[in-house]
Design a protein around this nucleic acid. Structure first.
Lengths: 194, 194
DNA sequence: CCTAGTTGCAAGTACTTACTTGCATCATGA
DNA sequence: TCATGATGCAAGTAAGTACTTGCAACTAGG
């Protein structure tokens, strides 16, 4: 299944052939077909086997003691780490979600729902502690997810190298700061005031 | 070339076959090979034919007269519109960038560089007018690009439907507001002050 | 030792794929 | 009118694809 994950990610579902997957796994092609009836089933099994498990509950307790900015930075960092560990899974999802059986589609959307729900829960916790402004949590979660995911995409998948700042923590820290300031409703809109 | 663009986007490079592309275009398969020597060359030609052209210069003049928040919202909106118009191109890029000839890779990165440069120029213009805070412009551009692109991905490509807010302008407006507040360095960090 | 289950090997099937070739058809422009 | 170039059709090639089958070798448990 690791071999399949790797090759599906590298060449796409249509581009990866069963012969090569079997070779990568160090078994005969026929063995592969005896275990996973067909290539389709193989993809399905691989993608559900390596599915994300929700780390949100654990994260919520983890950040409970941290100051707000640290908490958000930890949240973003953990999310990106998590994605990076499941790089291949994400890659396959991105590429095959729409042409593959609807199963993948729903799996991915369930994952996203869970994730955004977790972000919202995090924000709510911080709001209760009084260190996060009053804003629409769903919209905030979408934006938060947006710049984190996009950062991951560029760094881990598209291999962008031409940036001034390459230190991940620094970049995340800055994003989080902007997000935190931006959602704090005590900010004046225009610098003209005062 | 439109037919090829469409089918490559729908089924991926490996998944789209020349026979079908020709049929979609309403010509014989042999005609296709007489025009574009091989399938590889066809992909290359398609991707360079539909390349983005930089709209930044035009945008810069367009937003010159707008108040800051409007300007950023227009910038984000135009960017997302632009992506939506080239949906298929982006899809193919995302999927094929890494396995396709290095040409695609460099084309895409050049596009990103140009885009981020445009964002930076926009921000600088707004800074000169004194309505945008003092922050690292490259980092800001990366973040701005991040949440815009991610919004586009989810709306146009992944087909997310389960959100509370579906009005694009409203969402963008909120993102932009958070970004604008967040980068305004006159904001107090913690609500505790004052 | 014997049986059952797992694996590999070799060969093969039926189909698809990118790409080619030869020939006939047709429109255009000189 | 004639030549040129683009097109379609039909057939074919060579390779690759997912997937199957039969048989022999091996391993592990009773």
């Amino acid at each position: 299944m690791c071999a399949a994950l790797k090759l599906f990610a590298e060449r796409g579902y249509a581009g990866a052939c069963t012969k090569e997957i079997a070779h990568e796994a160090g078994v005969a092609e026929v063995t592969l077909f005896r275990h996973f009836v067909s290539k389709d089933k193989l993809l399905e099994e691989v993608m559900s086997h390596f599915t994300f498990i929700s780390v949100m509950p654990q994260l919520l307790t983890e950040i409970a003691a941290l100051p707000c900015e640290e908490a958000l930075a930890t949240l973003a960092g953990s999310f990106i780490d998590h994605l990076a560990l499941r790089k291949e899974w994400v890659k396959i999802m991105q590429a095959e979600m729409q042409r593959a059986p609807e199963k993948l589609f729903t799996v991915y959307h369930a994952f996203l729902d869970d994730l955004l729900g977790g972000f919202v829960a995090c924000f709510r916790q911080l709001q209760k502690r009084g260190c996060l402004g009053d804003f629409d949590l769903e919209l905030g979660a979408r934006m938060f997810h947006g710049f984190c995911f996009s950062y991951f995409l560029q760094e881990e998948i598209q291999g962008r190298k031409s940036y001034k700042f390459t230190n991940r923590d620094l970049v995340i820290r800055e994003y989080v700061r902007i997000f935190l300031y931006g959602t704090s409703n005590r900010c004046p809109v225009m610098p003209s005031t005062t």
